[in-house]
């Protein structure tokens, strides 16, 4: 019990952010028409590529003086993260362009 209380106090800020983000996520999505489910999902998918920021930090401060397996993995993480971000946003835009065209 005491452990849990300590944990909560130490991470209260993060827990606040989680709780509020969940609500924002639900609130923002709840009224989406079915027409947009696929683009919405693929747009959200691209946002989850925000992990790339982690990849930049990771590789950014990596030691380049010697070759290491971790560096290779880090660069791979960056490439895959970028794929997620760029591919995700591009594919979403392509789908939405189709919807737009039909409006007139």
């Amino acid at each position: 019990m005491e452990q849990a209380l300590i944990f909560f106090f130490e991470y209260k800020l993060e827990i606040f952010i989680i709780a509020l983000s969940i609500f924002v996520g639900i609130e923002v999505i709840s009224n989406v028409p079915a027409v947009l489910h696929t683009p919405l999902m693929s747009g959200a998918n691209a946002i989850s590529g925000v992990i790339i920021v982690g990849g930049i930090i990771l590789v950014g401060h990596a030691d380049l003086s010697s070759f290491s397996f971790s560096l290779v993995l880090g660069i791979l993480a960056l490439i895959f993260g970028t794929l997620n971000v760029v591919g995700g946003f591009a594919v979403t835009d392509r789908m939405l362009e189709m919807f737009k065209k039909k409006k007139k």
Binding site: S21, V24, I26, I51
Partner: peptide
């Protein structure tokens, strides 16, 4: 930004 972006997508 990562926390919020991630959780947002998770909840959605």
């Amino acid at each position: 930004a990562m926390i919020l972006g991630g959780i947002l997508v998770g909840a959605a």
